[in-house]
Computed example of a mutant assay.
Amino acid sequence: MNAPWLHSLSASAVALLLLTWGGNLACQLLLRWSGLRAARSADETAEDRSTKTPRAGRVIGHLERLAIAGGLLAGAWEVLVAVVALKSVARFKDLEEKLNAEYFLVGSLFSVLWAVLVTLAWRAYDSRLGLDFAGRLNGF
């Protein structure tokens, strides 16, 4: 494998890690900084903590940011609307409580912003210093 391919694959691997694990970490830090995480934890009862479902939110976050990145790389900005609509429909009942709605909005909006920024940086980096995978993808 020659150097340009290795360079582009390495940059893509870093971008994918930033989109998935980095995005989760950044969202958690923002929710902690905003006080929403502590407020939600204080609002939960002992019964809520004992009957918690698995942490599907992390997996959903990974998938939503990857879907947004794929859409942006393909030039389909409509993916942003679809992801936000899907999440809103899935959480519609939870949004009746103000604290849950704020937690959802802050986390979702930041996650979308993170995905857009990382993807645009990835695309700019690859078009200037890499093999321009996104440009080739748009050619299909």
Rank of each mutant, 00 (worst) to 15 (best):
F92D: 02
Y103T: 01
R37E: 15
V84T: 00
I68T: 03
S88H: 03
W21C: 01
A74K: 03
R40D: 11
T45F: 12
V79C: 02
V59Y: 14
W33A: 10
E97G: 03
V79W: 05
N100M: 05
N100P: 15
R32N: 12
A82D: 05
G23P: 08
R58A: 12
S10V: 05
R40Y: 10
G71D: 03
A11W: 12
L66V: 13
L73M: 15
E47D: 12
A26Q: 05
S41D: 15
A85Q: 01
I68M: 06
A38C: 07
T53H: 12
A90Y: 13
R91G: 09
R32Y: 05
G22Q: 01
I68Q: 08
G35V: 04
K98H: 10
N24W: 10
N100G: 15
R91Q: 13
R37H: 12
S88F: 06
R58L: 14
A82V: 15
L18F: 08
A13E: 02
K93E: 09
L25H: 09
E96G: 14
V79E: 00
G61C: 08
T45Y: 06
V14M: 11
R40M: 14
A74P: 05
G23A: 07
A39D: 15
K98N: 09
I68R: 10
A39E: 15
W33M: 02
L25G: 07
G23L: 06
